[in-house]
């Protein structure tokens, strides 16, 4: 039983990270119907930037680990967000009117570009986040010793998701994003600046993704330049699982995928956990072809 709960919490921590990255996929898809394959690499860049700021720029020495992590969390989010906006301007905006798959290939190109840029700058080896950055307390929960970092990762991702949810649902700008997602043309006629909304989405999504990269660094302590492929693919899977374009769907899909993986790794075989995650995805799509929370749109005739 203890093993089950530990795996469950571990799954929720990883799932929270998947969910944050998945939000970037799903929001971009919502407004542009584009799968931003470079999103996973923005996440990698977040992890590397975090390490540079914390260690090389010695922010952790100046501010102390806890405050530094918090400050860097915000900084990384902002920097990656700006990069996301630039990416949209250069690689996607010229293709807005083109065939959707052309934009997908451009995104794949951007992904290869970013991945290799990171490799050229930092080198092909993996990097280690120093131990002192990781909160090393444990919490006793129902008689189990739970690592504090695990709970903090879960808490951070849940907080970010709630903040995003409130922003999307409660603010005028959030309403504009929802409007553009439903019908770009109508939103434009209603006086919404569609380009600004798309830029904003490319700011929020990568921002969350970059922050998630930092969280992975702190949680696992190790990062490498190819991590964006696997995390990106998982997060995209999570977004589809929940129903792409659907924000609560991405959150649910991420958490669910994290838990499925953790349980598969714990109870079946660690080597098969990725395969099992995809298998579950396929099974769910066979039952619900548009994901768990995706709308079942009937064909208009």
């Amino acid at each position: 039983m203890e093993q089950f709960f530990q795996q469950l919490l571990n799954g929720l921590a990883v799932g929270g990270i998947y969910a944050l990255v998945a939000l970037g996929y799903t929001m971009v898809y919502g407004v542009l119907k584009l799968i931003n394959f470079a999103h996973g690499d923005l996440f990698t860049i977040g992890a590397y930037l975090g390490l540079t700021l914390l260690v090389s720029c010695n922010l952790s020495g100046l501010l102390g680990p806890a405050a530094a992590v918090l400050a860097v969390f915000v900084m990384v989010g902002l920097l990656v967000a700006i990069l996301g906006c630039l990416l949209e301007r250069t690689a996607y905006r010229p293709l807005r009117k083109a065939n959707r798959l052309s934009a997908v290939v451009s995104a794949l190109g951007a992904s290869i570009f970013f991945q290799n840029a990171v490799m050229l700058i930092y080198g092909a080896r993996f990097y280690v986040y120093p131990d002192y950055l990781r909160p090393d307390f444990t919490v006793s929960l129902f008689g189990m010793a739970v690592p504090g970092v695990r709970l903090m990762v879960i808490a951070a991702s849940v907080l970010l998701m709630l903040a995003l949810w409130a922003f999307i649902q409660r603010t005028r700008t959030g309403a504009a994003i929802r409007a553009v997602a439903i019908d770009q043309g109508a939103a434009r006629l209603m006086g919404i600046n569609v380009n600004r909304v798309i830029s904003l989405v490319f700011f929020i999504g990568p921002g969350l993704g970059g922050a998630a990269g930092l969280m992975v660094g702190i949680y696992y302590g190790q990062i490498d330049f190819t991590m964006g492929w696997s995390y990106g693919l998982k997060a995209f899977t999570a977004a589809i699982l929940g129903g792409i374009g659907n924000i609560p769907g991405a959150m649910l899909g991420g958490l669910l995928l994290g838990v499925i993986e953790a349980l598969a790794a714990g109870y079946i075989a660690i080597a098969w956990k990725d395969a099992i995650a995809f298998l579950v995805l396929i099974l769910i799509l066979i039952i619900r072809p548009t994901g768990i929370l995706g709308e079942r749109t009937a064909d208009k005739l």
Partner: peptide
Amino acid sequence: SNARMLIFGLAMMLMMIWRPQG
């Protein structure tokens, strides 16, 4: 050498922007 795939990725983007229809 090392920058080969970087240029490759860039070329992929540029080719699609140059000819979106293929």
